[in-house]
Amino acid sequence: MSLLHKVFDTLLTAVSKVVDFALRRRSFPLRIFRAGLILIGATAAGSWVSSLFYADDVRALSLHIEISGGTPELITWLAFMIGLVLTAVGGVWEAIRFAEEERKEEERRARRRVVVIEQRGLAKSSGSPLKDALPKDVVGVPQSILLDHTPYVENNSVTDPERVVGEVATVRHDLERSVSDVAREDVTVVYGGVSPVPLTFLAGFLLDDDGAVRIVDWDRGEARWRSLDGADDGERFIVDGFDRVPRGAAEVAVAVEVSYAVDADAVGRSLGAVPVVRLSLPTIDKDNHWSDAKQRALAAQFLKVVSDLGNRGVRTIHLFLVAQNSVVFRLGQRYDQRNLPEVLVHQYEKTANPPHPWAVKMPTHGINRPVVVRRAPLAVQHPTDHSA
């Protein structure tokens, strides 16, 4: 049965290609080809209608029309031969034109450059290189920019934040250098990664005006790279705490909850009494981010909140993100380095003291390079000994 299905599918594909070639494609050679088919069909139709016969139980009718010799027969054969010539000329011309199109398309594909930016920064990062798993619709010669932070990660803690931040800080320069010999329209940028939040946000921040970046993410359940091809479920951030921010506040914490909830107690221990604005999805889940349209809408909401905080006089935003890598990268892309408050993106390490031991200050307001800001350990509270 499967063999019959394969034969049928092959025939169906062949018929579809013939129909597409003969009827749907548009070009001058094909107009000639179709005109020839019409002429051939017209001459054939003349022979089909030359004899008609009808019979049933009570009667029989016969109609016979024959055109033979003279001008009508000459015209019929002349039209038939012209139709053959037009069909042959149009078909050969179109085949040559189509082959030339394919050759130019191959040259265009060879010219196209696909710059694959991959961040690896967690101990359990993907073992599958992104450059070997590009979406099928991405065409071009792949060139990889690998930001591998794993040598500086131990027990899910970054041992040398300054070193890895310095590596990420060059990503814009690395991208520009890799495409310096290629026209802009022939470049596609694909980004994906599994890395600590501040480093991912920084990468997006530095690639902010590359709107053509194709973002993919690592599907942990299926253990593969995946495009953001899911349906938009319509969920958007619920914003809480904005109205409690005093005008002119020096510092505000913004907690973004997408995949898990932000550890509110840890934020308080790291910053102290700082107003907190919370952006939370109604359904917090590790697989709620696979829609590109949804991510764009969430990024627009995020941008509006931080912009409104700036308009409220806030000078510094402390950002605490618990979200998937692609979401963090996109939020970094949307953060305007010229018109928004300065922003520090904090690294969360649950067992560290403090639980947010360092943050990355993004290069805004005259700061040319990202800066690592470390926090001093908190004083350990020992229970009072009341023994005599």
Rank of each mutant, 00 (worst) to 15 (best):
D160Y: 13
R24K: 14
N353E: 05
D160K: 13
I75E: 02
G121Y: 07
M1W: 15
R34Q: 01
L206D: 05
G272H: 04
V197P: 00
P357D: 05
R374G: 00
V18F: 15
N339W: 08
L78M: 13
G204N: 06
M1T: 14
K361M: 10
D186G: 00
S125P: 02
V252T: 04
A376W: 05
L321N: 13
K17C: 11
L74E: 03
V139Q: 11
L331F: 08
E257H: 05
S178F: 08
P357Q: 05
V258K: 02
H365I: 07
R113Y: 06
G46S: 10
L134S: 01
G221K: 13
M362C: 06
G211A: 14
V328D: 04
K304R: 15
V139H: 11
L78Q: 04
K104V: 03
E235D: 12
R226A: 06
K6C: 04
D219V: 11
D9Q: 15
D217M: 03
D219Q: 02
L331G: 03
L271I: 06
G272M: 09
F53L: 15
D137G: 11
N353V: 09
A376H: 10
A99M: 10
A42W: 13
R177V: 12
E349W: 09
P246Q: 00
E100Y: 12
R184S: 11
R24V: 12
V252C: 01
E102I: 12
Y260C: 06
N311G: 15
V168K: 02
R34S: 01
R226W: 10
R184E: 13
S157L: 09
T200P: 01
S387T: 14
P129G: 04
S50H: 08
E162K: 11
Q337T: 10
L3Y: 14
V85G: 06
S68Q: 14
A250D: 13
I238E: 15
I75V: 15
T283I: 04
V89C: 01
A55N: 12
D308N: 02
V168D: 01
S126E: 02
W225F: 08
L281T: 00
L340K: 06
R278D: 02
A300D: 12
Y191G: 01
G241F: 05
A60R: 15
R236H: 02
F201D: 00
K294H: 08
D243L: 04
K131T: 14
H64G: 13
L84R: 04
M81A: 15
V7W: 13
G332M: 08
S280K: 06
R296W: 11
Q381K: 13
W358F: 15
